[in-house]
Simulated scan of single mutants.
Amino acid sequence: MSILTGHDNRLAMANPRLPKHEIAGLAGTSFKHQHLPAILADDAPGGFFEVHAENYMGAGGMPHAALARIREDFPVSLHGVCMSIGGPQPLDKSHLARFKGLVERYEPALVSEHLAWSTHETTFYNDLLPLPYTEATVARVAGHIDEVQDTIGRRLLLENPSTYVAFPSSTMSETAFIRELVKRTGCGLLLDVNNVFVSATNQGYSALAYLSDFPLADVGEIHLAGHAEQQDDEGELLLIDSHDGPVADAVWKLYELVIARAGPIPTLIEWDSAIPDWPVLKREATAAQAILDRHAPATPQEKIRARA
């Protein structure tokens, strides 16, 4: 297991000029640089912003200038998409070093990556590919998570995948696999509710049963996103985790069930293609915030009024 004690304090002292922003109970959105003027002009722009780490691995330029401006006023969540934690080969040391540099540079409130693989030798694929859920895979992925956490000095949140195929060689369920990773590494989890719905629909299992077996106590962030409907070669419904539209009603319902059980976990609206104007994206985050607020713990004043 990674030894994380004391790392957060050392990182907090690394850049004392950065303000500390609370993220608990907030809903946020993916940060898109074209929205920056609208965000800065908005009297109530929202809770936090998430960025893909790989978009900021250059040394400077306009992307960093925009992110630095956002970081002044809002919590930031750093989300990696190319670490290939589930891959069979060792982690790319230079990529991990750049990832660490971003963590130290921006001191994000949350840091996450995917339970997937996306590389082969020196090639990076534009996909998050599934992996078999076996004891051998658990051991390999746990080692990768430990390496990331020891390098960045932070607890990593691991995101459940959206899947379109299953491996016959798997010997455990996805939720059992994820619980074992948490047990061995001390990592946290990023629960993507849309991914649960997509995978359950594509593979014919119950999204409710999956969530009932998911270790919600270890979830540090939630993702919501839109998906697209297609047909497979047999004419059956196939859902694609496309991030190109609003959150579906069925996903909203699952999300409210999760929040009712687990409390107001920071929640992000992902929208990564066919990107709308800022007010459209903000409306999705406002809907998530309303659900979070409904399930927020009562304040002392509210408890007194309830007893009166």
Rank of each mutant, 00 (worst) to 15 (best):
L224P: 14
L224D: 12
A225D: 07
A225G: 11
A225E: 10
H227N: 15
H227P: 15
A228K: 15
Q230S: 03
Q230P: 10
Q231C: 04
Q231M: 12
Q231I: 01
Q231G: 02
Q231N: 09
D232H: 10
D232G: 12
D233N: 03
E234P: 02
G235R: 01
G235V: 13
G235P: 04
E236V: 00
L237G: 12
L237I: 15
L238C: 01
I240Q: 01
I240N: 00
I240L: 11
I240R: 00
I240S: 01
D241Q: 00
D241A: 03
D241W: 02
D241M: 01
S242A: 11
S242D: 15
H243K: 02
H243C: 14
D244I: 03
G245V: 15
P246G: 15
P246S: 13
V247D: 11
V247H: 08
V247P: 10
A248Y: 03
A248I: 05
D249K: 15
D249L: 06
A250Y: 06
A250Q: 14
V251Y: 06
L254G: 02
L254H: 06
L254I: 04
L254K: 07
L254T: 03
Y255V: 07
Y255W: 12
Y255D: 09
Y255Q: 07
E256Q: 09
E256Y: 01
E256V: 04
L257Q: 11
V258N: 10
V258C: 06
A260T: 09
A260G: 07
A260C: 02
R261C: 04
R261Q: 05
A262M: 06
G263S: 02
G263C: 02
G263I: 03
P264E: 07
P264R: 00
P264G: 07
I265Q: 09
P266M: 13
P266Y: 14
P266F: 14
T267Q: 08
T267A: 10
L268F: 05
I269H: 13
I269A: 06
I269K: 07
I269Y: 12
E270S: 15
W271G: 11
D272P: 05
D272F: 02
D272S: 03
S273Y: 10
S273W: 15
S273N: 15
A274Q: 15
A274L: 13
A274V: 14
A274K: 13
I275Y: 14
P276T: 01
P276Q: 11
D277V: 12
W278V: 03
W278H: 10
L281H: 03
L281C: 11
L281A: 12
K282T: 11
R283L: 09
R283N: 08
R283A: 07
R283K: 09
E284R: 02
A285I: 12
A285C: 09
T286I: 08
T286Q: 14
A287W: 10
A287E: 08
A287G: 08
A287R: 12
A288N: 12
Q289H: 15
Q289N: 10
Q289I: 15
Q289F: 15
I291E: 09
I291P: 12
I291Y: 05
I291G: 05
I291V: 13
